[in-house]
């Protein structure tokens, strides 16, 4: 890490990662969980970009935040009201 600012930003992102991962498990309600998971993916992507892994960051952002969210929402919509 180059500077103190970057270090602090890293700590904040890591804390938010843990927080969003935990809330994804604890929150009830499918759609909310899916959105929280996509927040997790975005944070992951930012982290990867900070750690100089831009390729991975791009893949994580596109897949985790974009594509998977769409798939999960579709699946949740299709299975709504079918038991638990």
């Amino acid at each position: 890490m180059n500077s103190l600012g970057e270090y602090i930003a890293l700590i904040i992102i890591l804390a938010c990662l843990v927080l969003s991962a935990l809330s994804a498990v604890l929150i009830r309600g499918q759609i909310t969980t899916i959105i929280v998971l996509s927040v997790f993916s975005v944070l992951c992507a930012v982290l990867f970009a900070m750690l100089q892994a831009v390729d991975v960051a791009m893949a994580e952002a596109v897949i985790g935040a974009g594509f998977l969210t769409a798939l999960f929402v579709t699946a949740a919509d299709k299975t709504r009201g079918q038991g638990s």
Partner: peptide
């Protein structure tokens, strides 16, 4: 950065 996979998604 990026490539076929990221662009494809």
């Amino acid at each position: 950065p990026g490539g076929g996979f990221q662009g494809g998604v």
